[in-house]
Write a protein that binds this DNA or RNA. Structure first.
Length: 799
RNA sequence: GCCCGGGUGGUGAAAUGGUAGACACGCAGGACUUAAAAUCCUGUAUCAGCAAUGAUGUGCGGGUUCAAGUCCCGCCCCGGGCACCA
């Protein structure tokens, strides 16, 4: 007679024991092989941990436990990415300093993480908003500054004229401020950038990374390398030259107009004092309100622009062609687009504004005219009306045309990247202040390392910006001394993008005890790169690219990579939407943990589906896991069970070892749990000996750590199960003696035969033919082919 | 719009090109119980049939193959990202 499993008390007992025995304290100097198991650290939101966090962290912890049982010294740290917008907005609303609300959230999240029963070593943590962390974020900024990778330039921000503040994209809804509905405009501010574009090539080199292929492709597309040509368009009057970059110089004879970005620095000069000045101003005002997605969206009605009154010369044919301003031209690259009939967007714009168009490519080189077409001819083909290039295939002509343009001085071969420099200035309070002092005499002066951190003032701050960043009203920021000349100077009042803080935290976790450096080069050398990095796919292009960039810079090695292997967990939604406080659809794990225990809850999340898929939250089915834990407990707890068949038992145990090991290696936790259920259903029926029970406890240990530790201890295992060795399977016992396979006739299953693993093709086919139902179909024609895939299928083709 | 994913029973899902629906939830029936809960047993893609079996079936339309959820081409729908949410 076995008693039922008391999840909550058992879990608390083991959590206590794990703590008091310091089971998860990691010795970074240990000689065991290292394994750095990292998850993306959370933002300490007021919603605390939700089921999405659990969905992410629990399997990641299971993975760490699995690696530990496989003999690795697993380092599994946890921290908080605690700067950011929500705490600042909360402060604006309530006056509570972000330091206070953030630290409070951290305390409750640590408590929740404890209830989860994870292996985190809290001696080694990182909280980005604490001065002992952001001191070093500022130091990181200065490293980039000293390498010439930080610079300032004008860049637009979302500006709400009513709130007198900069808005995040998230705060702009349909072009309006989400608080006061004022129409948002783009306003230029002088801001800091990191030259990530200098690292385009090293960042493209990702062949050695064990990352999801889709993530690598997304990064590659984000960096957007293309090769093409700059083409110079001289103004008809005046000396200015408009340089356009194109990947399609083969269409140069088709170019009938040129489009400028509304933000182009030459634009004002071009239209100043002309009758077009007013119209350009008006159109720019409208475009100012559009988001980049709206501007580049490919649906015809959204394309807007106007004539500038200016003309440029198409260098190849001397044609005088008009210059337009349009929303779809962005101020990236040269900010000038050469426009022609072979591009759909250009074509539609030209139609809308009655600009002449001409084709120079057709399928066979026959002359075609845009007036007979509804849209652009975007295919490849044979060139015509292109002087020396007529009759050539456009793709083959392309490099020759670049040679021609270069030879004549009309242009220059060029490589282009879509990757833009990283804008890091934020006109906000809750971030790390940029460690630069502006001195009227000495100019930009970096804060000396000994004066770091530049501390954020606590309390007595007006978090709500009134036209200026909040720190602009803090006296010690406005009045300070220049470190060079000791004269009066002022500090930067902008703070840094939180992505900077999250670009190097994995190094901070590895600090030496005294923490007197940002990170310890000796420890880094041993422990980097991170062996497993787990986090959401939404970070594919930004965080993961920024971290790779910062790591390369800090390591002084363009080949250095921070994350060797990467896995993305899926997103957990509620009623189809991302969980967020504003939508009021955040689901807390606490009540489920209270009711069923952490093991049941984490296994339920794993059992929901593949880790990389995510899904919509529902607690339907959690009882299945509670039943399973109870059954598993009964199976291992029953004093003496009669083993029905030793060999059958042995095979089921070894098959399970193989299956669980393979599934965990592939992050298929869902099928690992399913196999354990199947095993339990059989084990309760057929009985298990003590050695097999101990193996079963070990196999469930990564997935249900408390349950496993309890079973292990009851079975007389030495504490802790997580210091025991992961069981090995004997291949001999992983194959059943006989299998049932299907018999197909012309691809349709017509019967089933049971054969042993030694059965030859002849025997299998003979057996299949003896099946009455199969025979029925075989006699309907001539058997022209016989197929035998051992262990899978017997097939006949009948004609 | 652009880039990247995904679409399988009532539900969550499983499936190296080889018997589609493992494992669960739910539901139905049964056992135990005065009763209920819990537990245990049986059934459960759809249609026809007592059954054997047959037909249909993995978003839609085509293709390759003895054999397609899986590979190829063209659509539709849903999700993530698009540079200030993190």
């Amino acid at each position: 007679m076995s008693s039922s499993y008391k999840a909550r008390t058992t879990e608390q007992k083991w959590q206590k024991k794990w703590n008091s025995s310091k089971l998860y304290k990691v010795n970074l100097a240990s000689k065991k092989p290292k394994y750095y198991n990292l998850v993306m650290f959370p933002y300490p939101s007021g919603d605390k941990l939700h089921v999405g966090h659990w969905y992410n962290f629990a399997p990641a912890d299971s993975w760490g436990r699995y690696k530990r049982m496989n003999g690795f010294n697993v380092f599994e740290p946890m921290g908080f990415d605690s700067f950011g917008l929500p705490a600042e907005n909360y402060a604006i609303k309530t006056g509570v300093p972000p330091q206070k609300s953030t630290e409070k959230n951290i305390v409750s999240m640590i408590k929740q993480l404890g209830a989860m029963g994870t292996m985190y070593d809290w001696d080694k943590t990182a909280v980005t908003s604490r001065p002992d962390y952001y001191k070093w974020s500022q130091w990181v900024f200065l490293q980039l500054y000293k390498k010439g990778l930080a610079y300032k330039k004008d860049a637009p921000v979302n500006w709400c004229s009513s709130c007198q503040t900069v808005l995040a994209n998230e705060q702009v809804q349909d072009g309006k401020c989400d608080r006061c509905s004022t129409i948002i405009i783009q306003k230029n501010l002088y801001q800091w950038f990191f030259k990530i574009s200098d690292y385009s090539e090293p960042l493209l080199d990702n062949a050695d990374l064990d990352w999801p292929e889709k993530t690598k492709i997304m990064q590659k597309n984000w960096i957007g390398k293309s090769s093409g040509c700059d083409i110079y368009f001289k103004l008809e009057d005046g000396d200015d030259v408009l340089t356009a970059y194109t990947t399609r110089p083969d269409t140069i004879y088709s170019v009938t107009f040129v489009v400028m970005a509304p933000e182009h620095p030459l634009l004002d000069g071009l239209v100043k004092g002309t009758k077009y000045e007013q119209e350009v101003k008006e159109i720019r005002k409208v475009i100012n309100r559009q988001s980049i997605i709206e501007r580049t969206s490919d649906t015809g009605k959204d394309k807007i622009g106007c004539f500038t009154g200016k003309y440029v010369i198409n260098p190849v044919n001397g044609a005088k062609i008009p210059v337009y301003v349009a929303n779809f031209a962005l101020m990236y690259g040269t900010g000038i687009v050469m426009a022609d009939a072979h591009d759909q967007r250009d074509f539609e714009f030209a139609r809308k504004y009655s600009i002449p168009l001409k084709f120079v490519i057709s399928e066979k080189g026959e002359k075609i005219d845009p007036k007979d077409f509804q849209g652009a001819y975007t295919g490849d083909g044979i060139l015509f009306d292109s002087e020396g290039f007529n009759g050539m295939n456009n793709r083959q002509a392309l490099p020759k045309m670049i040679d021609f343009l270069e030879g004549k001085g009309f242009g220059k071969r060029a490589t282009n990247y879509k990757l833009r420099d990283w804008l890091l200035s934020r006109q906000r309070y809750w971030g790390a202040p940029i460690p630069i002092i502006n001195c009227p005499k000495c100019g930009e002066v970096p804060v000396p390392d000994k004066d770091l951190p530049v501390v954020l003032p606590i309390g007595n701050v007006d978090y709500k910006p009134k036209g200026k960043a909040p720190l602009a009203s803090v006296p010690r920021f406005v009045n300070t001394k220049c470190p060079k000349c000791k004269g009066k100077a002022n500090r930067e009042v902008d703070t840094m993008d939180t992505f900077i803080c999250s670009s190097w935290y994995y190094l901070r976790y590895l600090s030496a005890k005294d923490k007197k450096q940002a990170f310890d080069p000796k420890i880094i050398k041993k422990w980097m790169p991170v062996d497993m990095y787990i986090g959401g796919p939404e970070h594919a292009c930004m965080h993961l690219l920024y971290a790779r960039f910062i790591h390369k810079v800090l390591m002084n090695d363009p080949k250095a990579e921070p994350f060797k292997k990467l896995v993305h967990q899926g997103l957990i939604t509620k009623d189809g939407a991302k969980m967020s406080k504003s939508k009021g659809n955040v689901v807390s794990p606490d009540e489920f943990v209270e009711k069923y225990g952490s093991d049941v809850f984490r296994m339920y999340l794993m059992f929901m589906g593949p880790f990389t898929d995510g899904g919509d939250w529902s607690d339907k089915g959690i009882t299945g896991l509670a039943r399973f834990v109870e059954r598993f407990w009964t199976m291992l707890d029953a004093k003496e069970t009669k083993v029905v068949d030793q060999k059958v038992m042995k095979i089921s145990v070894h098959k399970l070892i193989k299956k669980i090991s393979e599934d965990i290696e592939k992050f298929h936790f869902n099928t690992a749990v399913a196999s354990l259920m199947e095993f339990t259903n059989l084990g309760l029926k057929n009985g298990l000996d003590k050695a097999s029970k101990k193996i079963a406890a070990q196999l469930i240990a990564p997935l249900a750590p408390h349950l496993a530790e309890e079973c292990w201890s009851k079975l007389g295992g030495k504490y802790s199960i997580f210091d025991s060795k992961w069981p090995k399977y004997d291949a001999e016992f992983t194959v059943d003696d006989t299998v049932r396979i299907g018999v197909q006739v012309n691809g349709k299953v017509r019967g089933e035969i049971e054969i042993s693993k030694e059965t030859t093709q002849e025997e299998a086919i003979k057996l299949a033919r003896s099946n009455e139902n199969v025979l029925k179909y075989l006699t309907q024609g001539q058997v022209v082919k016989e197929i035998y895939v051992p262990g899978r299928i017997v097939g006949f083709v009948v004609k």
